[in-house]
């Protein structure tokens, strides 16, 4: 198979020449910093290294501002965008690195608020409101209830240690690297951008679409919610006594 052989050869040469087509050095540094920082910051036995990880993540966050500026393709980024994005990513990092589920949930509320900011920046007003109401108002409260129900007296062992943090971080950041690199080579909106008025996602605009073009989908969504409700009740009604407690009778 000479074709494959030559392809491998050319691949090795291209890697040696750092000809990664869209991968700026800045982006690579950001990714490496982020991956390393997250690996160290994840809960685990490397207790002493967690502040180092946090510091690396802060550095990555600073770098991210420049990366985002790169991605703006010469346009000026609104200060609010940078703020919301950094807050959202900070909250997200804390959700996955915090050892106490309650705090994770609370950081998730912060994440929702930051994402709402991003949505508002994109003139998606109705969606922003819906997100806050449904997520912060409903879903997160349910989470908190469950967390309270399943509260451990002290730090649970499964909260204190992450599983396979290294492989997980590598997989995640390879994915991110590919997405980011692809974004830069893909055709993107460099032309005229719609004004805020044009793009305003009011209740009227979204609702009209929902009740015309997507009328069947919205019915199906309603059906799905009903089925989910029935299912949740059916599951929750099952008593633990159905199966033997502790060993579960299935082990």
């Amino acid at each position: 198979m000479p074709g494959i052989a030559s392809w491998v050869e050319r691949s090795v040469r291209a890697a040696g020449e750092w000809n990664l087509n869209g991968m700026s050095t800045l982006l690579v540094i950001f990714l490496v910093l982020g991956a390393t920082g997250l690996f160290l910051a994840l809960p685990g036995t490397r207790g002493g290294w967690r502040p180092v990880g946090m510091a690396l993540l802060v550095a990555a966050g600073i770098l991210l501002v420049f990366v985002l500026a790169d991605f703006a393709l010469g346009r000026e980024l609104p200060i609010w965008f940078g703020g919301c994005a950094l807050v959202a990513l900070f909250a997200a990092t804390r959700v996955i690195t915090h050892t106490k589920p309650v705090y994770s949930a609370l950081y998730f509320v912060l994440l929702i608020v930051a994402v709402t900011g991003l949505l508002l920046l994109m003139s998606a007003e109705f969606l922003a409101a819906a997100l806050v109401i449904v997520y912060a108002g409903a879903i997160l409260v349910t989470y908190l209830f469950v967390i309270m129900l399943a509260q451990q007296a002290r730090l649970a062992p499964y909260d204190a240690r992450a599983r396979e943090p290294f492989v997980g971080c590598v997989a995640g950041f390879v994915l991110l690297a590919i997405i980011a690199a692809q974004l830069l080579v893909a055709p993107s909106g460099v032309g005229a951008e719609p004004t805020v008025e044009e793009a305003a996602g009011t209740v009227e605009a979204v609702g009209t679409l929902l009740l015309t073009d997507y009328i069947i989908a919205i019915q199906l969504a309603g059906l799905l919610l009903l089925a989910g409700m029935v299912g949740a009740i059916a599951i929750a009604r099952r008593q633990a006594a159905d199966s033997t407690p502790q060993n579960g009778g299935v082990d």
Partner: peptide, 11 residues
């Protein structure tokens, strides 16, 4: 997929 995009194989 990305790598094939960067270094196209000799079809």
């Amino acid at each position: 997929w990305r790598w094939i995009d960067v270094v196209p194989p000799d079809v």
